[in-house]
Design a protein around this nucleic acid. Sequence first.
DNA 1: AATTAGCACTCGTTAAAAGTGAGTGCTAAC
DNA 2: GTTAGCACTCACTTTTAACGAGTGCTAATT
Lengths: 345, 345
Amino acid sequence: MLTDRQLLILRAIVDDYIKTAQPVGSRTLSKRSDVTFSSATIRNEMADLEEMGLIEKPHTSAGRIPSELGYRFYVDHLIRPESISPQEAKALKSLFAHSVNENDRLIRHTADLLSELTHYTTLVLGPKEEGQRLHHLELIPLAEGRVVIVLVTETGHVEHKTLQLAEALSREAASRLMERLNQTLRGTPLSQLRLRLLEEIRRFRSEHSEQTTLLSKALDIVLTDQHEERPLIYLGGKANMFDQPEFQDVAKLRPVLELIEQQEALFDFLSPSLDNQILITIGSENNVDALKDCSVIRAHYSVDGVSLGTLALIGPKRMDYNRGINSIIHLLQAFQTELRKNSLD
Amino acid sequence: MLTDRQLLILRAIVDDYIKTAQPVGSRTLSKRSDVTFSSATIRNEMADLEEMGLIEKPHTSAGRIPSELGYRFYVDHLIRPESISPQEAKALKSLFAHSVNENDRLIRHTADLLSELTHYTTLVLGPKEEGQRLHHLELIPLAEGRVVIVLVTETGHVEHKTLQLAEALSREAASRLMERLNQTLRGTPLSQLRLRLLEEIRRFRSEHSEQTTLLSKALDIVLTDQHEERPLIYLGGKANMFDQPEFQDVAKLRPVLELIEQQEALFDFLSPSLDNQILITIGSENNVDALKDCSVIRAHYSVDGVSLGTLALIGPKRMDYNRGINSIIHLLQAFQTELRKNSLD
DNA sequence: AATTAGCACTCGTTAAAAGTGAGTGCTAAC
DNA sequence: GTTAGCACTCACTTTTAACGAGTGCTAATT
């Protein structure tokens, strides 16, 4: 167990290092107003903290920096919640200023806002398709056998696909089919939609002996495609990475920026996160080599208890956890409220 | 006017420098099989070329590198067209392999393909909205006064917007309105669409004395929004920048990568380009400070003579112009063929 | 007159050497 | 238990020296 003084010193080291990115020496610490004891005492305590693995020195004659364990301890025990500033509160209000009807735009806006708030890079994982339920399906026949299929989920998410049939689909046929499909399929989870859609079309076809083979085939292809597409990832404040002193070296910067561009890898990395809690992973805890010098703060967002996606903040291990956590908490609130408005169930 | 030997030397310098990124010395050049004269002669010729401003030396005891003027001369007079390799031809075919119905996906795919082909960063400017003409408009009323409006252009581009009315719009009213709008508005350029749409709704309303004020108001807002949105920019191969030796320094890399993330700035920069020709801008010719160390190869793409957008390649000034130009020419062809297939007029 | 060999000179690059100072760990005194 | 004092460490900076690729000029050669 740590003494109060050790806690004070550890916190001071982490705070200072987060602010300056420079190893913190005993003399520097002894000058702080909340430190009443001498630098020699601090050195002794530091030696103990180092033995416990909470801090380390880059080399013999440098000050101390927090180890990953140190950051972990800091995050778990030493963070003092800090309320947001008036400016930020105002910025949050601006998200509300005019409702954004499209979830896509809302998500993008949120990613940008969060990165503005924190000066870190932001990732927002769009809603997972599979979990969502169908609200409405629309078929729009165009010229030359081209059909646009519009799909609206209960969360208010709209997307469209264009498909090409060998023969034109008449407006009437489309209308009849559509009415039937909507009646029977509303509420179907998208994960099951493809199967049930095909089944339904087949049944419809036998009842009306209509020429819908082509349609069902095309739909099959399209919906398969769709299933393969993973949720979109929106990025905000990519350029913020450049400002971090630890990423002035291209060798350090490159893997992070490269990873960020790879939607798939990012998805795999961000996707599995539990609960509604905020999850913080530090350095090697990320289990991704490219992020071994980064920390990630994650939060799930959900509407009506249904988990939809992830909001994440990525920065150096030396990131301002306090600010990050606070920002993500507050934005999460606002964001979910807006999402709720767009939902259709 | 340059002598044949000077041309040979200049070309050799540029070719060599493009390949190695190292200043080219007279001794190195004299070893080439196509050089029959001595290094002293080369030095003399180099001195002349330098006087003409075509090459320069980074410092006294280094070899020569092409100046911007040198690159310009090389691009204008010395490039030898070089046909693409079988692998690349195959890669081009793969674009055809299965038609992509959505222009958006097609454009993204093209950006990726082009960057794979060239190992440079690719920019593709999506079609300009204003120039396109309306093919079809669809209103899909959902629950709670929510309406999805789907807009299909003659180029086969589909997009949707969600709007929120104060009152629900009945399916019948929507259907009647839609039929009318499509009859009168098909072929309208999107730049005029908003005005004509409002006008049409007003007329419809007076004829049928229906309650469409709210709709027209909402439409107004939505379409205004839409107009503000500039064409999308798709990026491919951003990570390729990291491989260029000239961008190993963060200070050099940063402005380029930052610019690339700024859709607006990019749009302003890429948008004005004339004709159907290929346009190459080198270094300061770009008129953008962030690109003073870059060269850009641009080509307009069009369907049926209507210019739609821009395909661009961005790399260091020391880029492989030959390969770049060839790749962009060939891909442009294939890309336009695919676009043509998706068009609806 | 054009070409080439020869050579002194330049200057960035690399390596080794010396000096600097922030910070530590230990010991002895308080 | 705390602190003052001091020798020690080691990254960082500066200095110096050696290196070598490449140039420009001159004189000899074709």
